[in-house]
Amino acid sequence: MRFLDHQASPAEIRRHGEALGTIFDIWALRTGDRWRHEAVIRGLCQTAYLGDHTAICRILGRYKMYVDTRDVGVASHLMLDGYWEMWNTETIIRLVKPGMTVLDVGAHCGYFSVLLADLVGPTGKLLSFEPNPPMAELLRRSVAVNGFDGRTTVHEIALGQERGTATLEVPKNEPKNAHVVQGKGGPGTVEVPLRRADEIPGALDADFIKIDAEGAEQAIWTGLNDILARNRPLTILLEFAAVRYADPAGFLNQILSHGFNLAEVDLVGGVQGRSPADVLNASPHDDQMLLLTRG
């Protein structure tokens, strides 16, 4: 076994770590046996408690991530398994390329943001949006500890169809389900800045957008107007649940009017072609991760 000295390049260190099996090769997730990959990542997962309800864990067998230990919805999986929503993880790894400009809308503590920042590389750009202040702070720390802060901008704001403020309700121990509500806030709510995506510096050049916003998707889509109007090649991963929209068919038509091909990232089967009827005939309470591509 050859040991690396202090003059080894980052690429040499990465190859060496992968050869020893101590750093997971995320490119393996493009193909192969998901269950085997999950087992390897789970075996590489480590977690250290730092105090004050904060831990740092290893995700995807290679990145460091700060989490809130009270978060039962996502952090429990990251601390024990080291991955989250593997079907979406695999799809993102296949689609995002070096040099891209990417928007992560609804970034939570940063699981997908850290992965996206690595995928776009030093020539790319990641704009990461998380309105919940405690989660945004964990996101910033995770981006920095992995060395991705030079290519990543964290925006502690909600996105929608207008500029102003929004009331964010954060369920106790389930920050991934934080959502914008109408009217005055009560216990468990926080006032946050609200902006349109297309007014954010750099966002007009988006190549890939991930949107997971617990019901705010249609307002966010309206705020993408100037990005969509450029008619550039664009891929959007958007969570769609019909029960959240007053007119789900109208919203889907609004989406497809911009020239997108429609597919869904299925839990078991991966990317599957879908018709509008397929999407609208699914249970209205199901979260469907739509894959929209054009160009």
Rank of each mutant, 00 (worst) to 15 (best):
M1G: 15
L4K: 08
D5G: 15
H6R: 13
A8H: 13
P10M: 09
P10S: 09
I13W: 14
H16V: 00
F24V: 09
L29F: 10
L44W: 05
C45D: 08
T47W: 00
T54F: 01
I59V: 15
L60P: 01
G61T: 06
Y63Q: 05
Y66C: 03
R70C: 01
V72A: 12
A75M: 03
S76D: 13
H77L: 13
M79G: 08
L80R: 14
G82W: 02
Y83Q: 05
I92A: 14
L103P: 10
D104L: 01
V105I: 15
V105K: 02
F112N: 10
F112R: 04
F112Q: 11
L115F: 07
S128V: 01
F129W: 09
A136T: 03
R141S: 04
D149F: 04
D149I: 03
R151L: 06
L159R: 04
G160C: 10
G164A: 13
V170W: 00
V170K: 00
H179D: 05
V180L: 15
V181N: 06
V190Q: 07
V192K: 03
G202W: 03
A203W: 13
E214L: 01
W221L: 10
G223V: 00
N225K: 12
I227K: 02
F240I: 01
L252H: 08
L252V: 07
N253P: 00
Q254F: 09
Q254A: 15
Q254H: 14
N261K: 14
A263T: 07
A263L: 06
E264S: 14
D266I: 12
G269C: 13
V271F: 06
P276I: 03
L280D: 01
A282D: 10
Q288Y: 04
Q288G: 08
L292T: 06
T293W: 12
